[in-house]
Design a protein around this nucleic acid. Structure first.
Length: 223
DNA sequence: CCAGACGTTGTT
DNA sequence: GTCTGG
DNA sequence: CCAGACGTTGTT
DNA sequence: GTCTGG
C-alpha cells in the first residue's frame, strides 16, 4: 500500500515539470507526507493547477467524515465496483504529485522503512481519486486516495502492495475524460528497472518528523 | 419495508 | 447514493 | 502508514 | 484492542 510519501522538490521545478500553477501560499515541500494532511494533486476538472486536498477519501454520500481515515488507499482491481470509489473512479480521477514513497518491511517483530523512488529520483505521480464532501457546517472538504496494485520485483521483498505510479506519457491520460474502462489498463505495477529502493532511518516512523535527516541510510542487519 | 454498510493492510 | 441482509 | 491516546471532576 | 491525529 502507500501510507507515507515525499515531495522534496521546489515548487518552481514542480510547476515546470507538470505545467501547472502552484499557489505559493498553499505549497510546502515535505519529507513525510501523511494521511489527513492537505497535499497538492492535479484533478481532471482543474488540470492546469495544483489543487490542495486532504489525504483520505470521504465519499460524497458519507454521513461521517471519519470514513476518510480508512480510505487512504483504493485497490485498483476493484475501484469500478466498490461503492466508496466507483463514482470517483468514473468522474473524479487525479494525479498525486510525489518524488518517492515509504513502505515498511516486516520481518518477525521488526519493521524497516524503505524509501522508493525513480532511479534518477525525479518527480512522478500516483494514480488517485478525489472527492468533495459537504460537511454539516456547509463547508466542502476536498479529499483524495491513492490507488494500489500488486508489487513488482523490486517491491515484492518489501511489501505485498505498491502504489500505482504513472509515466509522464500516461499521467494526462489517467485524468482525461475517457471512460474508466479505457484507462483501467494504466493501473499496473511500474517498471522496476526504472526504480530504486533504499532503507531509511526509523525516524520516519513518526509523522511529526519531517526533515531531510529521515532519509539517512539505516543500519542494515545482514544475515 | 428499514437498518446498516460502504475500506485497506496486516496479522492471527 | 446504493446495495445487502433481515 | 505509525504514534499515541484511551477519563472525569473540580480547581486554577 | 481500537480510534484519532499527523
Amino acid at each position: 500500500m502507500c501510507g507515507r510519501f515525499t515531495l522534496t522538490k521546489d515548487k518552481e521545478e514542480i510547476a515546470e515539470r507538470f505545467e501547472i500553477h502552484i499557489d505559493p501560499a498553499m505549497f510546502s515541500k515535505t519529507y513525510n507526507a501523511a494521511p489527513s494532511q492537505t497535499l497538492p494533486i492535479i484533478t481532471n476538472t482543474a488540470p492546469e493547477q495544483a489543487s490542495f486536498h486532504k489525504w483520505g477519501l470521504i465519499p460524497h454520500w458519507a454521513k461521517d467524515e471519519k470514513i476518510g481515515n480508512k480510505l487512504i488507499n483504493a485497490r485498483g482491481e476493484t475501484i469500478a465496483e466498490k461503492p466508496s470509489f466507483r463514482d470517483a473512479a468514473e468522474k473524479r480521477r487525479c494525479l498525486v504529485i510525489t518524488d518517492g514513497f515509504y513502505e515498511w518491511q516486516r520481518s518477525g517483530g521488526e519493521k524497516q522503512p524503505y524509501r522508493i523512488t525513480l532511479a534518477d529520483e525525479s518527480l512522478f505521480t500516483f494514480a488517485g481519486l478525489w472527492e468533495s464532501w459537504s460537511a454539516p457546517n456547509g463547508r466542502d472538504v476536498r479529499t483524495f486516495t491513492i490507488i494500489t496494485t500488486e508489487p513488482n520485483g523490486l517491491m515484492k521483498p518489501i511489501h505485498k502492495r505498491m502504489p500505482v505510479m504513472l509515466t509522464p506519457e500516461n499521467e494526462r491520460v489517467w485524468i482525461s475524460d475517457e471512460p474508466l474502462e479505457e484507462v483501467l489498463h494504466l493501473l499496473k505495477p511500474y517498471d522496476e528497472k526504472e526504480m530504486n529502493a533504499y532503507p531509511v532511518s526509523s525516524r520516519v516512523n513518526s509523522p511529526k518528523n519531517n526533515d531531510i535527516s529521515i532519509l539517512n541510510i539505516a543500519q542494515q542487519t545482514i544475515f
